[in-house]
Amino acid sequence: MHIPDGILSTHVWVPLAAGGVGAVALAARAARKRLAEESVPLIGLMGAFVFALQMLNFPIAAGVSDHVVGAGLLAVIFGPSVAMLCMAAVVTIQALVFGDGGIAALGANVVNMAVLSTLTAWAVYHALKERLPNVAVVAATLLGVLAGAGGAAAWVMLSQPYGAKFLGAMVLTHFVSGMVEAAVTLAVVKTLRAAGLVPGVAKEVAR
């Protein structure tokens, strides 16, 4: 879901870069209030895990692949601010070190994957977790992926003369990959809870 350089217009990527920087700064401020030092190693490992997972492109159609975003996973286990910081770190390293996603488009990619995906996933999870804990994880991940893809489609369509067909293709393909990611996320969250690395839903609600 990484927008390369050469796609976005200047009047699209400049505001998005500013928005991305602002959002990450706000996330850092919010994370600072609730971050306990003993949880730092787990957060670092989960960020690395999301980086690794993003390398595993899987087929969603003949000749078309996609990869997980990881925003849903991080938002469910760490909450929005820490998840935003992790996603921003992953996306930035991908762009600067591996050329995955453009440099000018970095702000747009941070906004899509670290802000839109993460906040949508967290909001959905937060709304559903008490009544339907498993459905909450699945719905949060899927809607998070779709929010990020919708953002990417919007920025591209504001820059290029692509119409509804482009949006349709983006939503359809990311619905498929979002369903795969939802299953992966649910499995990982259950494993982490079983291992006692993250609190279960009951404990989380009580907090």
């Binding site: 990484h2 390369p4 492109n57 692949s65 983006m170």
Partner: peptide
């Protein structure tokens, strides 16, 4: 990993 462009690149 499936070595083809991802959904955004393909679109």
């Amino acid at each position: 990993a499936y070595p083809f462009p991802d959904a955004l690149e393909d679109s």
